[in-house]
């Protein structure tokens, strides 16, 4: 899973709440640690929702600035930092999406798989790009629910908390999103290298 529930749990380092407290107390290095821990989360979601690196950078940076400003007033245990940041990032993406029309995804940029042979890496890149392009055709809420569930690896209750809807509504959004994606990608199975023997 790209984003553990508490990103520090498995690392033996300070918990997310403790890290924010350290930052608020002025501990040196806390800002860099927060950046390393939380910026990838905000950037991944923004990139997958908006499909443009430049927009994703703007949104991720703004989300992080809000987290820095929030840290001194953060109440430990009331909410999970990751959940809060996902929600803020999703809201910023919605704002950004309203300002700009969804642009073609740049899924191939900056996501080369290290260590893979060139041909295989190219195929993988094309597959991921095709998936992201198909995701971009989904309605906003289906796209968000599906990205959080299948690309960020979150559970439905946490997605419900992020989207401020019920768990059943999340399940419905994810199921509809999957069906629609499967339909969109069904005509490209051979191109994507899947199920070639059926075609």
């Amino acid at each position: 899973m790209p984003m553990p529930r508490d990103s520090a749990t498995d690392q033996g380092t300070a918990s997310d709440d403790q890290l924010l407290a350290d930052y608020a107390a002025g501990r040196g290095g806390a800002a860099a640690e927060m950046t390393a821990r939380f910026l990838p989360l905000a950037y991944r979601l923004a990139f997958r929702m908006l499909g443009q690196a430049a927009d994703a950078e703007d949104v991720a940076q703004e989300a992080m600035l809000r987290l820095f400003r929030q840290a001194p007033g953060w109440q430990a245990g009331r909410a999970r930092v990751g959940t809060w940041l996902y929600r803020v990032t999703a809201n910023l993406c919605a704002d950004q999406g309203r300002r700009r029309r969804l642009a073609p995804l740049e899924a191939a940029d900056g996501v080369a798989a290290p260590g893979l042979p060139a041909e295989e890496a190219l195929t993988d890149r094309a597959r991921v790009a095709a998936l992201h392009a198909a995701i971009a055709t989904l309605p906003d809420r289906q796209r968000l629910a599906l990205v959080l569930r299948h690309l960020e690896g979150l559970g439905n209750p946490e997605i419900a908390a992020i989207m401020e809807i019920g768990v059943e509504a999340v399940e419905s959004l994810v199921a509809r999103g999957r069906r629609r994606l499967a339909e969109v990608l069904a005509g490209r199975r051979a191109e994507l290298g899947y199920g070639g023997e059926d075609d």
Binding site: P2, R44, A56, E57, V111, R125, V128
Partner: peptide
């Protein structure tokens, strides 16, 4: 595959 090739911040 997409999870494995997650975009990283520049």
């Amino acid at each position: 595959l997409a999870r494995k090739r997650a975009p990283e911040p520049p």
